[in-house]
Design a protein around this nucleic acid. Structure first.
Length: 495
RNA sequence: GCCGCCAUAGCUCAGCUGGUUAGAGCGCUAGAUUGUGGAUCUAGAGGUCCCCCGUUCGAUCCGGGGUGGCGGUACCA
């Protein structure tokens, strides 16, 4: 019988890659979102919200040959057999929204939105299957100024979040330049599509694997420390040298000379030069917005400039090993995405912040923005005599009427446990009334116990007698009519 | 997906060359200390030793297969 019960009991367990969030994290997230929102609005972006669910087709994640959605997106069938999916980013839904409301929207259309996105992938440290992004996009402008603005806004936003100048950098590249380089090493054409992908992926890994690792991935392939082998692009030595010359180029000038033969590369470099000039004119030096040839980003829809926001500082982790946070946001130009819904292409560019990942970074640098220790709980009114519950309830109501968060202790434990409870809730003070206070010669009294001061005093001694003497200093009694004022004063001490 | 490591109380971990009542510390609950959080003391609750199959008189321990976790790598729109 008992065995059967145990077997049938549901397991209280969250699927992997998902996380619950407590009050401290919720409060911190709200603060981060507020800071980002303020920054985006300062740049003239307006809010818009789209649902979590879209037609899989609208997200562009349908596998036509297999007649089902891409793994990697959470999908299910609607009543009419149409595939629906949870959004995996905020960009594809925006493209759908713009296309659906094209005639109504001002062009260029500048909007921001925050929300959870879902990816059915293997989770890792700092990687979840549900996580929050905060995006801003300009749709309907082909101007490089729109791209430059994204970079500058990204820099401003990170600083608004309390990340110091020098602790981050916005790295900029251009897909046209990358495509030009691929062209120059002879990888144009449909038959080389696969190798182009491999080469771009290899370049993207420069940060993590270093030049030697990238060369292996461009050539024969690379074996990682667990012994697993990654197939390379199989390029010839001179092609590899050419790519190496590209990713290690000392500056724009060098790139212009070595890849002058590609019109595409020349155009891309021109755009980059313009972004750098615009950023420079706005006062954003290369310490904040920097051209970096190794930035690649996603392979699917970017068509021009691409950006990546990277945190450059290192923090010592719990195990003593240095932790780098790396990329906490990115974006770029995607001129073809809205065009999937319309006959003509609509130029667009955007930037996205990974809020969840940024949160862990801000925690690591102990940013006051995410410091949960300031969280205060409600004033707790203790129940010493169950028969007087109505009276205690009246205290709570009075406090609430005065705008003070308060609660009646609703458990069944003794006074000791009630104070422990109040402490655990983060209450600034507790309201106590036993028979001593109630039957006082001067009329009914209440005792206000300052839990913050009490904790400080308790920490100062290990001796029981001292402790008993000291703790009396953390509390005082007032007539019942003075309850709200007295509590208000104690709260004022600790704001 | 691939490679490697791991799985015993809420947490961190002992334990047994295979033997019947599986432990510690911390945490949790209650009590004592004047009616007061800490400290101290006392008591208590909490376990399918991840699951299944096999070997064995007997498996938490040995073997096989799963599942889950961690790390690396791939993919990441």
């Amino acid at each position: 019988m008992n065995d059967q019960k145990k077997i049938q009991r549901a397991s209280a367990k969250l699927p992997r890659g998902l996380a619950d969030r407590g009050p401290a994290e919720i409060a911190a997230t709200e603060k981060m979102l507020a800071a980002i929102r303020k920054s985006y609005e300062l740049y003239g972006f307006e809010a818009v919200e789209t649902p979590f669910i879209e037609y899989t087709e609208a997200l562009g994640k349908f596998l036509p040959d297999l007649d089902r959605p891409n793994e990697g997106v959470f999908s299910f069938k609607d009543d009419d057999e149409a595939w629906l999916s949870l959004r995996y980013d905020l960009t594809a839904p925006l493209a759908r929204y713009v296309a659906e409301n094209y005639d109504k929207l001002p062009k260029p259309y500048r909007s921001y939105r925050a929300g959870y996105v879902f990816r059915n992938e293997k989770p890792g440290p700092g990687r979840f299957r549900q996580f929050m992004q905060f995006d801003a996009d300009t749709v309907g402008s082909a101007s490089v100024a729109a791209d430059a603005e994204m970079c500058m806004m990204a820099a401003d936003t990170l600083e608004a979040l309390g990340i110091k100048r020098g602790d981050y950098v916005i790295k900029v590249n251009n897909r046209k330049v990358l495509d030009g380089v691929l062209e120059v090493i002879g990888l144009s054409g449909e038959e080389n599509a696969g190798r182009r992908m491999t080469v771009l992926r290899a370049i993207d890994k420069l940060d993590r694997l270093g030049l030697e690792g990238v060369r292996l991935l461009l050539g024969p392939g690379r074996k990682d420390e667990s012994g697993d082998f990654t197939k390379g692009a199989g390029l010839a030595a001179e092609q590899i040298d050419r790519v190496e010359a590209y990713v290690t180029a000392p500056g724009m000038g060098a790139l212009e000379t070595s890849f002058a033969e590609s019109a595409l590369a020349r155009q891309g470099l021109e755009e980059l030069a313009e972004i750098a000039a615009l950023a420079g004119a706005g006062g954003y030096g290369t310490d904040r917005v920097r051209i970096d040839p190794s930035v690649v980003r996603g392979l699917e829809y970017y068509t021009g400039p691409v950006f990546e926001a990277e945190l450059t500082f290192e923090v010592t982790g719990e195990d003593g090993a240095p932790v780098r946070f790396g990329s906490i946001g990115g974006g770029g130009r995607y001129d073809g995405l809205v065009g999937r819904f319309r006959g003509e292409n609509v130029p667009a560019t955007g930037f996205s912040i990974g809020v969840s990942r940024l949160f862990s970074a801000l925690k690591a640098i102990r940013s006051p923005l995410v410091d949960g220790s300031a969280l205060r709980g409600p004033v707790v009114v203790l129940v010493l005599d169950k028969g007087e519950t109505a009276r205690y309830q009246r205290f709570v109501a009075e406090l609430r009427s005065a705008g003070i968060a308060a609660e009646l202790y609703l458990g069944s434990s003794g006074m000791n446990a009630q104070l422990k409870y109040a402490d655990k809730r983060g209450a600034v003070c507790a309201v106590i009334q036993g028979s001593n206070e109630r039957d006082h010669v001067d009329g009914p009294q209440v005792t206000i116990r300052d839990l913050v001061v009490g904790a400080e005093l308790a920490a100062a001694t290990k001796d029981r007698a001292d402790y008993v003497e000291l703790r009396a200093k953390a509390q005082f009694s007032v007539p019942e009519s003075g309850l709200v004022d007295a509590v208000g004063q104690v709260l004022a001490r600790h704001t």
